[in-house]
Simulated assay, not measured.
Amino acid sequence: MKARLFLAAAAGAVAFFPSPALAWGKTGHRVVAAIADTQLSGLARAYIREILGGAESLDEAANWPDEMRSNPEPFWQKTSTPWHYVTLNGIIYDHAPPQGDALEALNHYTATLRDPNASLSDKQTALRFIVHLVGDLHQPLHVGKCCDKGGNDVKVKWFGKDTNLHAVWDSQIVDEEQLSFTELAAKLGRHTSDADVIAWWDVNPRDWISESGEIRDGLYPPAPPKGAKGTKGAPAVPELSYGYVYKFTPVMERRLQQAGVRLAAYLNEIYAKPLATEPPR
């Protein structure tokens, strides 16, 4: 019943982000899951294997909520769209809008994993969403502000090609180094100290949201001078290239590291002790 009410409340709402807003892209989400996988407790790993089965890894599950947005069903085309981000002015999260948001979805799916009456299919959906949403909340432009749709409306050039600031942070800055997700996850794992893990081990999503909100505004490039013209006389837009990469790659990598650590912490917290019943079969 709670699930149906949650879906009904979200259905029919207008999202503030356009549907292509996919946090981190495929590489980033897989990196987050791969980092988390190295820090799972034995109990959490056992429950995850029971839910996903032996053929699906955590990093494979990470992009499923984005991949399913190609499904023409109304749930994927309309209802679930606002569940990939939150919107706030400043850095303190207040409450979800009527259509729901990423934090409300995270809470909903966490309850599903803990529900002894939930079906295996529901738990699979819940786990895949949780893996994805923890990554989303660490992408600073998925903690959007009014009213540029998380940077989707901020037009920029990335090494001379037209794009927008949101797309830069979803994929382009992550993929600039041209590492596979396993290579990038291994690199970031080597550069995550025990002290980092201790400092970042935080299961409160509101803290992650506030961190992203603090980072977000600093990612916006200066606007060109008023009246400046770009290619073919069009209004000039910020040109992002090596200088932006140099300045913000450490920020991007730190958020991926933190998301991986927090995902492990969050899943370990859910499975801190055996649940009331055996895992679903």
Rank of each mutant, 00 (worst) to 15 (best):
H138Q: 05
V31S: 09
V86D: 01
I91P: 04
I173M: 03
N152T: 05
D194F: 14
E73L: 13
D202N: 14
P74Q: 10
G243N: 13
S121A: 05
V174Q: 09
F17Y: 14
R255D: 02
G150F: 05
I215N: 05
I198Q: 13
L103D: 01
A236N: 10
A15T: 05
Q124T: 14
D122H: 08
M252L: 11
S19R: 03
F248Q: 01
A126P: 11
L267Y: 00
T38F: 05
Y246T: 08
P74W: 06
E278C: 01
L40Y: 06
E60F: 12
G12Y: 06
P274D: 01
L240F: 03
G160C: 13
K247V: 07
H166Y: 10
P222F: 01
A33T: 08
E211Y: 02
G144I: 07
Y220H: 15
H84K: 04
L267V: 04
K123E: 06
I92P: 00
Y246C: 05
D115W: 04
D101H: 02
I51W: 09
S193V: 12
Q172N: 10
P116E: 08
Y246A: 11
W201C: 12
A259D: 02
W200F: 15
R114L: 11
G151P: 06
P98G: 02
T87G: 01
S70Y: 08
I215D: 02
S70D: 09
R128G: 08
K273S: 01
S193A: 15
H142E: 05
A185C: 12
Y266N: 07
A33Y: 04
D202I: 12
V251K: 01
D37N: 11
W158M: 04
Y266D: 08
K187E: 10
K229M: 13
A15K: 00
L184F: 13
D94A: 10
T125D: 15
E60V: 14
A33F: 09
L103R: 03
W24S: 03
G230N: 15
K273I: 00
T81Q: 02
E211Q: 12
L137T: 06
L52G: 11
N152F: 02
D196Y: 14
R49K: 02
S19C: 09
I130L: 04
G230V: 07
S121M: 05
K26G: 04
E183V: 12
L43V: 05
K161N: 13
G160E: 12
V154F: 03
P225A: 11
T27W: 09
Y47K: 00
G151Y: 01
L58K: 07
L179V: 07
G260P: 00
L40G: 00
R30N: 11
L165N: 03
P97H: 04
S121R: 09
N164A: 12
F75E: 14
N71S: 14
D66H: 05
Q39E: 12
L256I: 10
D217C: 07
N204Q: 15
A61V: 10
H166W: 11
G28R: 05
P250L: 08
R49H: 03
N268T: 04
A185P: 00
G150T: 04
K155P: 15
V245H: 03
P116M: 10
I270A: 07
S212P: 00
